[in-house]
Every structure is written in structure tokens, then in C-alpha cells.
């Protein structure tokens, strides 16, 4: 078992064997979470602070539950720009929190790189719960676990990532992870929603959805990030749904057993057909939510082990 990371800032920093370690450990937590008594003590006595500078219900709830099931004391800081509005810088906020001796800091921030910056200033383990358009590592890991459970493997699959790729941190983390695990990745969307330099990503690019879905094992839909847009990326929601909204007809171009994923929250009728999203034979969207808690438990467990080991070494004065 290998997991060397001190923080979980992005998939970029993880080796394939570290990704496998997270997924394997998460499997055990899936089992635990299905029992009536869902308690483990991996984080007993530890303090976890969830600091969300950007509104979130699902991710914050998932991290909170994950921490509580592992026995941590969990605190949610409703920082949604409260201290920032008072003029406090991110680093000052971090130093203030650091003085309270948390062990795990879960951070979401609207600026790319903000979580990296914060991690340099604190001496606990930092988990990136989404920074700007950069990364959302636990989402990619939970997606990987969902795929592995549905398909029996997480390599040599053809995975389509569809929609607003330019503004999506979920897409960034997923394409890095899927690339590291040696999958074939297709990016499907209107060219105005493709990131710059996308031709150098080593992915196959499509602006025709039917063409792009041919032969795919996995179809990942992305939320159309309306709130992120300066305006004018697409002509209208209805034209977007017509061309890029996933429905049964478009899905019929993918493999017969292709699964449908969505990181949520969904815009039914914008990027995905409501009925298809609820089709338990194709959609694994609810599984993703379940895997989310297990994966976050695994990540925090592994980071806590490394943190304990590091503190142990410091206590006996071993050079690291």
C-alpha cells in the first residue's frame, strides 16, 4: 500500500499506485457505510475543519459525514466570504485557523491555486474540495471508484467527458486521473466551452455529440456552470440541450452497457434528460454520491496516517 502525500491538493500530484490505494481503502468504507452502525475510529480525537469559501451543500455534507463516521470532531466554517468581506486575506484566515490546531483542513475556494497557497501556510493536512477551475480531486477519485465498481476496472476504457469543460475543475481532475490510469478520453462540447490548448491534452475532441459517444464505456456529463460564465458562450439553453443534452437517443450511440455519470447538482433538461438521469439501469449518479463519502473517508484516513507518522518522527527528532 502506497500513499505518500501530505496534502490532497490535486490528482496531478498522485501516482497511479496512490490512486489505487485510495480506491482499495474506500471499498472497505463502502461496506462500513452500508451497515447500521457506521463507526470507525481512524480520526478519533482529530479535528477536521471544513472551510468553504464558495457555497456548497453536497460536497460539504459529504466531507462532514465522512469525518464524523471516522470519529473526528468536525467543524463547518461558514466563511462564504464573511471574513474576506472584512478585508482579511486568505493567508490571515489560514493562520488564524492554524492557531486552533486542526488536523485536517477541507477547503473550497473560488480562485484556482488558492488551496495550494493556503497549504503552504498551515501545518495540518489540507484537502482540496475544489479550487476555481483548477482541481477537485475527491470528485475524480469517487468517479474512479464508481467506474471501477460498475465496469470491473479503471483502465483501457473509453470515457467521454461532455459539456462545459472550460470552466470545470471536475473535468480537469478527471482527465488527469483517467489519463494516469491509461484510459482513452474524449472531450465533447461546443468549441466555446473547450479550454485553450485542448489540442495538446492528448484527448480526442468532438463537437458532435453522437459522433463522440460512439463506442464509449462511460459518459460523464458536466454541469453547465451558468454562474461562472461571462455570458455568451452558447446561444441558448434550448439549443445547448438540443445539441449537447444527453438523452436516450444520443446515448444509443455509446456502448449498450455504457454508464451515465454526473457530478451534480444536475440541471435537468439543460445538460441531461431527467428520465435518463433516474434510469437505474444506465445512470450511476446516486452511486457517485455514495462513493463520495467512502472516498473522502479513505482520503482523510490516509492523510491522517501520514500526519501521525510525521508528528511521530518529529517527536523523536528523526530527520525527514
Amino acid at each position: 500500500m502506497t500513499f505518500r502525500a501530505r496534502h490532497l491538493l490535486g490528482i496531478e500530484h498522485l501516482a497511479p499506485e496512490e490512486i489505487r490505494t485510495v480506491l482499495d481503502l474506500a471499498e472497505t468504507y463502502v461496506d462500513l457505510n452500508r451497515r447500521t452502525v457506521k463507526h470507525a475510529d481512524a480520526l478519533a480525537g482529530m479535528t477536521q475543519i471544513n472551510m468553504f469559501f464558495e457555497a456548497s451543500t453536497r460536497t460539504q455534507a459529504s466531507f462532514e459525514l465522512a469525518g464524523k463516521r471516522l470519529g473526528a470532531d468536525v467543524m463547518n466554517m461558514s466563511v462564504a466570504h464573511s471574513s474576506v468581506k472584512k478585508g482579511e486575506t486568505l493567508i490571515d484566515t489560514a493562520l488564524t485557523l492554524n492557531a486552533m490546531h486542526p488536523d485536517l483542513l477541507v477547503v473550497r475556494h473560488p480562485a484556482s491555486g488558492a488551496v495550494d497557497l493556503l497549504a503552504q501556510k498551515v501545518n495540518c493536512a489540507v484537502l482540496n474540495a475544489g479550487d476555481g477551475r483548477h482541481e477537485h480531486p475527491t470528485q475524480a477519485l469517487l468517479d474512479a471508484l464508481t467506474i471501477r465498481r460498475a465496469k470491473g476496472r479503471i483502465q483501457r476504457l473509453t470515457v467521454a467527458i461532455c459539456g462545459d469543460i472550460a470552466h470545470s475543475r471536475v473535468a480537469r481532475s478527471n482527465l488527469i486521473l483517467l489519463g494516469k490510469m491509461e484510459n482513452r478520453i474524449r472531450l465533447i462540447g461546443p468549441p466555446t466551452l473547450m479550454p485553450s490548448g485542448v489540442a495538446d491534452f492528448g484527448c480526442e475532441l468532438y463537437d458532435d455529440m453522437r459522433e463522440g459517444l460512439k463506442g464509449c464505456d462511460v459518459v460523464m456529463m458536466l454541469r453547465l456552470q451558468k454562474e461562472r460564465m461571462d455570458g455568451g458562450f452558447i446561444p441558448s439553453e434550448r439549443e445547448y440541450y438540443h445539441r449537447y443534452g444527453l438523452d436516450a437517443e444520443k446515448l444509443s450511440f455509446a456502448k449498450e452497457d455504457a454508464i451515465v455519470m454526473h457530478p451534480g447538482p444536475m440541471n435537468r433538461g439543460v445538460e441531461i434528460d431527467g428520465e435518463l438521469a433516474d434510469d437505474i439501469n444506465r445512470s450511476v449518479i446516486q452511486d457517485q454520491v455514495e462513493m463520495g463519502v467512502a472516498v473522502r473517508m479513505a482520503c482523510m484516513d490516509l492523510l491522517a496516517r501520514n500526519l501521525r507518522a510525521e508528528r511521530g518522527r518529529q517527536a523523536v527528532g528523526v530527520m525527514v
Binding site: S112, D131, R169, R172, G197, D200
Partner: peptide
């Protein structure tokens, strides 16, 4: 407007707004 980097693969992977 709003750009912090030159557009391209690096800007995209860092999630930073780029200018062509």
C-alpha cells in the same frame, strides 16, 4: 480582460483565465 496567463495547455491545466 481578466486574464492572468497566456492561453494554452498550461493555463488550462492550472485553471487560470488566459489571453490569446
Amino acid at each position: 480582460k481578466g486574464a492572468a496567463t497566456t492561453s494554452g495547455k498550461f493555463a488550462s491545466l492550472r485553471g487560470l483565465p488566459g489571453v490569446s
